[in-house]
């Protein structure tokens, strides 16, 4: 077969196109493979998750929130516009809008639901981030790399749970009367800087030291159970097996890993 220069260039061009298309195809097919692997035990053997027992959760108690925000130097700007939060309470109707009706009983109506990043199996925030500043770790934690975040806030638009906060101003600053936004800095954890997005990190820094998340540790009612779903005899698996649980906005296909006992 004789190949002249024109043919050679054509073939070469097509080949290059194929190589260029491969990562796109990989990316597009990733969603499905994650779904398939989730059912039958993921490779890597870890799938961290949390179960919150709302029946044990006491009205007016903010132990988990305080512990989290103290541990992670989460600032308090005293106004809803600039607000930054990792973990907070929402009324039942706002946390589970699909499950709301006039006659909700069991003390749930209007009751507080502890909400945080859902560490989704199929996180939309990771899908939209243009720099991989937010990414999903192999053990399921959806992490933020504050060094890389450009502050475009695409992830905030993409998150269907409102779990993400932006640093509209310097979290290390102070208000007009000189009160610092971070009441007492925890030297063991960094603060953030102006112009980056932040959220719950499932206490990755504590897990590395063999500790459970700060919220779970702080809860006196033992309403928060944390563990690895891939471990058959783990406490999370036990609790999920013996209780009826729901997740927030399951219809969106994000596969949240925070489960609620209601």
């Amino acid at each position: 077969m004789k190949i002249d220069r024109r043919d050679f260039l054509k073939i070469g061009g097509l080949g290059a196109l194929g190589i260029a298309a491969k990562p796109v195809i990989n990316v597009l097919s990733k969603g499905e493979s994650a779904e398939a692997s989730h059912g039958g035990g993921a490779v890597g053997g870890k799938r961290l998750a949390m179960v919150v027992d709302l029946k044990k959760c006491k009205e007016g108690c903010t132990d988990c929130i305080d512990a989290c925000h103290k541990a992670h130097n989460v600032p308090d700007f005293h106004n809803p516009k600039d607000e930054v939060k990792w973990l907070w309470n929402e009324p039942y109707e706002k946390a589970f809008p699909e499950q709301e009706h006039e006659w909700v009983g069991g003390g749930m109506k209007g009751g507080p639901v502890m909400v945080l990043c859902n560490h989704c199996d199929n996180p939309p925030c990771v899908r939209v981030c243009p720099t991989k500043a937010t990414f999903r770790r192999e053990d399921g934690i959806v992490m933020m790399d504050y060094h890389r975040c450009i502050g475009c806030r695409f992830c905030m638009a993409a998150c269907p749970y409102g779990s993400r906060s932006f640093n509209w101003r310097n979290p290390r600053g102070c208000d007009a009367s000189g009160n610092t936004f971070i009441e007492k800095q925890n030297p063991g954890f960094p603060t953030r800087t102006t112009g980056v997005v932040e959220k719950c990190n499932f206490c990755a820094e504590r897990l590395a030291k063999g500790l459970i998340p700060a919220c779970a540790e702080a809860c006196k009612e033992n309403a928060i159970v944390f563990g690895d779903l891939e471990e058959a005899d783990s406490e999370v698996r036990e609790v999920l097996h013996s209780n009826y649980t729901i997740r927030r906005k399951p219809g969106l296909g994000t596969r949240p890993q925070i489960y609620y006992i209601v």
């Binding site: 990316v27 243009p130 502050g151 112009g195």
Partner: peptide, 26 residues
Amino acid sequence: FIIADLGQPTRALNIVFHPTLNSILF
């Protein structure tokens, strides 16, 4: 307008340094 909207405009080139094919912004 995109640059004006970025929280960390000095890092804007991260979009080029860490190209992310699944991001529409890329």
